[in-house]
Design a protein around this nucleic acid. Structure first.
Lengths: 232, 232
DNA sequence: CGATGGTTTGAGATATATCAAACCTCGTGG
DNA sequence: CCACGAGGTTTGATATATCTCAAACCATCG
């Protein structure tokens, strides 16, 4: 009985490419780790020592300029893969936004294992291609969208990605209501805006009846149609 | 004697993972194609039918909003891979910026071939991971940098990526002078700015002695140090 | 209850966009 | 050979979205 046997992301993470025996081998080089909100798993520019799978929680990937401006360049959810295999350095830090559990490997071990398991590499390739698609879509937002469009797009994406993926195929209806894993400042860092601008857009969308804000971290989408239009 | 035998990117593209026999098999499902500047190889939102390797030339990957705003989300050079294997649709158009030659596969054929050649998939994974890194770095530029910083960063990146990679390892000195494969409008579409702002930054950098502009498409980097500082 | 950290609101400053005109460059045809 | 026109580029004047700075506000927790 290994940790993998009870792993909740067993069927969705890249590990799903492996059979029982292979999984046992992978398990033997892995280590579980818990992270509290704000705790970092890796730092920008650091030698790429670790890679990991997200079991539980939400983490941000972020870079910054010398003078302290920050940009969140990615957000990862359960079953997502973290880190830079087959490379020497990580271009961004990885920090937990919520309580999180990850399944960690040293890059050395993981690289070696992956090279011997093409099915695993295939899953990783698929995941990486998907992440690249998503990242490029985000570039349109950062390069060309207004503050209002950015915030609306952001809320829609959140409502889609925060769905608790039960093992059974709960067929991915976007949420009408959810708790943001981000502070206002972090939302600003995702969208390339300032905290004040984000706050103003939130209140505007609320006053226009498109969303509701029951509490600081909670969002309810009242008029999804309208929000889609607002998202440009 | 196949087309691959004389291919100039033979040793740099993902094909370098294959031996002579495998290469012959790959060659049999490939097709060469020439593109003139402005010609498109795929369109945004289209079913993902083709993938390709760039042999020669520079191409842009771009998306846009309904109301006509455009954002270039990637630029590909010789030996780069184009398209979305293992996926159903392409999220961005692919258009030649210069005369270009590509080596095209149907996605069906390529997917099948790749699944049987792990070494090829491994190369593709490495390339995709690198592209993801580069794209995320670009997000910092789009989200947090000023117009001046963007243009300076752009020129530095150009000077690094336009190096003619000879077969022998000409060890990648960035160019002091090069011809832009972009119009001013396209530079604006890469940087998320307007054409006027780009133009003004070019003339400013020139007047400050950091660069020279011998002609519309040519750029000479006079003070690389200064440009790096300017890039933020 | 008061302190603290995050958030919202307000007033003003500023970088970039927008609109418009002048300016090159280069190819075409008289 | 020169005049012309067209497309792209630069320059200028103004508008505006977003940022900046500052204060008020609000939940939370000791």
């Amino acid at each position: 009985m290994t940790a993998c046997d009870t792993c909740v992301v067993r069927n969705r993470a890249i590990c799903s490419a492996l059979d029982a025996g292979e999984l046992a081998a992978l398990n033997s080089i892995s280590r579980r780790r818990s992270l509290s909100p704000g705790e970092s798993l890796m730092w920008e520019g650091e030698d790429s020592i670790l890679v990991a799978n997200v079991i539980d929680g939400v983490l941000k990937l972020s870079t910054g300029t010398e003078d302290g401006r920050e940009q969140i360049v990615g957000v990862v959810y359960p079953s997502d893969f973290i880190g830079r295999p087959f490379g020497s350095t990580t271009g961004h830090g990885v920090t937990a936004l919520t309580e999180a559990h990850v399944c960690v490997f040293t890059r050395r071990d993981f690289d070696a294992f992956a090279r011997e398991h093409p099915a695993l590499e295939h899953k990783l390739l698929q995941r990486t291609l998907g992440e690249l698609d998503r990242t490029r879509r985000w570039m349109l937002l950062l390069g060309r969208k207004s503050a209002g469009e950015r915030v609306a797009s952001f809320l829609l994406e959140m409502s889609e990605r925060l769905v608790e993926q039960g093992c059974q195929g709960t067929h991915d209806h976007p949420l009408a209501r959810f708790t943001l894993p981000f502070s206002r400042q972090q939302v600003a860092d995702v969208l390339g805006l300032t905290i004040e601008t984000v706050s103003r857009q939130f209140t505007r969308l609320k006053s226009e009846g498109l969303i509701d804000l029951p509490s600081r971290r909670e969002v309810a989408i009242v008029d999804r149609e309208g929000l889609v239009i607002e998202a440009g």
